[in-house]
Nucleic acid binder design. Structure first.
Length: 424
RNA sequence: CGGGGCGUGGCGCAGUCUGGUAGCGCACCACACUGGGGGUGUGGUGGUCGCUGGUUCAAAUCCAGCCGUCCCGACCA
């Protein structure tokens, strides 16, 4: 992609109403623009990153054997009346009426829809176990949206739902999905932790959260320094009857091993065992070997759009975003410096750009007629992992300059070595 | 919903107290110079000053109501 043709949307100054780093950088780097409180446009660079997140999730889900579907964002309110959650969810559920005065809501989650779908779809226990998932826009009319896409009203989420014959099966589906999540977070390249969690409004029994560690995180997590014990600090204080979560630091771990250490995290994934809660209230019965059963359900969410923000919270410096390679919108920025006075600069860039394209290296060629400083600053705020710099200097030296995003100075490499360095 | 802040060109802001018909920086367009870290000059484009009503000869400025948005809190993936 040539930068001269890309709608970049980078901004030099922080927007006045963005408080946290990821929000500021997402706007300055041209990832998002706000439409309304908690509602955002995703610009080309942002959409590329979001797409990468989605695909990593998709690959992880597919290889676990889950099957992708797509459910509607608009849901009949009657299903929520049946499940009883229309009152429980309250004002977070955005309700409206169609031209026939039928009552609908925008889906904040899809337990009702998937359970209803499976009433027709699943007819025999032989179809179990099965896990279905989607990557889709959710809407929750948050009391107070904040921090850009970190806590927005409209957001992109992967939600998966498993159906099993019995509790043993649910345990297996749950741990299969847990493993898939571990694989996904490894692929995302983020520093994360799994903690015991409260199952909240979704309901059900066992539940764990996946948190991206970041000082700006809204959740406080407690870890034993001697064992694998890890829990959302808020849940632990509830269990221990209302202490201040911060007071947990240094206290003995509830599992008897070591003392508790606290870290802040951003919740980006949550897995639940639902049991038969929804299958019973929505009457999803499946023919078993000798009698009908209510399938044991699990549900598994990952906040795709939130991951983009969380990744930035964890990976940035004073110049801008420093993407992990897995999420970078481009792998390489090719910056031409002062090509006006030296036709060879342009020619060299064309040659390298063609080489990178042939080798499927996603490259942003900054061919704009701008001062070098402007180009460097843009490539840095966007956070592209590698920058190749071509100018008169490099033409004369017969070498190519290549700089890693986190490095201060570029290194000189030969044309022959360039590709292997980039592909390594 | 309670408390606080803010709404003036795409972005950041001044002007509001003390009413006189809108300005600065960045960005953008044109030209020239410049050319390895956000360069310089000249000339431009772009604004119903959040909305509605009121006061006044005159309102960005004063008054009232409303709306939007951000932050803190309760709540929440």
């Amino acid at each position: 992609m040539k930068a001269s043709q890309l709608i970049l949307g980078t901004q030099r100054e922080n927007p006045a109403d963005a408080e946290i780093t990821s929000h500021q950088l997402m706007i300055r780097a041209g990832l998002i623009r706000q439409v309304s409180s908690g509602i955002y446009n995703w610009l080309p660079i942002g959409k590329k990153v979001l797409h990468k997140v989605e695909n990593i999730i998709r690959n992880g889900m597919d290889s676990s054997g889950a099957q992708e579907i797509l459910m509607p964002m608009v849901q009949p309110a009657s299903l929520w009346e049946k499940s009883g959650r229309i009152d429980q969810y309250g004002q977070e559920l955005l309700i409206f009426f169609d031209r026939h005065e039928n009552k609908f809501c925008l889906g904040p989650t899809h337990e009702e829809i998937i359970t209803d779908l499976c009433k027709n779809l699943l007819t025999s226990y032989k179809q179990l176990p099965v896990t279905l998932y989607q990557i889709q826009t959710k809407f929750r009319d948050e009391i107070r949206p904040r921090f850009g896409v970190m806590r927005s009203r409209e957001f992109i989420m992967k939600d998966a739902y498993s159906f099993d014959l019995n509790k043993t099966g649910l345990d297996e589906s749950y741990s299969l999905m847990r493993e898939a999540y571990i694989e996904i977070f490894k692929d995302l390249g983020l520093d994360y932790r799994i903690v015991k969690a409260d199952s909240g409004a979704i309901g059900g029994s066992d539940s764990e959260e996946f948190h991206v560690l970041a000082d700006s995180g809204e959740d406080l997590l407690a870890f034993s320094d001697k064992s694998d014990y890890a829990i959302n600090a808020e849940l632990l204080t509830e269990l221990q009857e209302g202490q201040d979560p911060l007071s947990l630091e240094g206290k003995p771990s509830p599992d008897g091993k070591g003392v508790l250490k606290l870290k802040k995290g951003i919740e980006v994934g949550h897995i639940f065992k639902l049991g038969t809660k929804y299958s019973e209230v929505l009457n999803l019965r499946i023919q078993g070997e000798d009698q009908d059963i209510y399938p044991e359900m699990g549900c598994y969410g990952i906040g795709a759009s939130r991951i983009v923000a969380a990744a930035i919270e964890q990976n940035h410096d004073e110049k801008g975003i420093v993407w992990p390679e897995s999420l970078a919108p481009f792998k390489v920025a090719l910056v031409e410096v002062n090509s006006k006075n030296n036709q060879k600069v342009k020619e060299k860039c064309e040659e390298i750009y063609a080489l990178l394209r042939e080798n499927n290296v996603d490259t942003l060629w900054d061919d704009r007629d701008k001062r070098p400083g402007v180009k460097f600053a843009d490539m840095e705020v966007i956070g592209i992992p590698l920058t190749i710099i071509i100018g008169e200097r490099t033409i004369e030296s017969g070498h190519i300059e290549i700089k890693k995003r986190q490095d201060e100075k570029p290194e000189l490499v030969s044309h022959q070595d360039l590709l292997s360095i980039i592909l390594s």
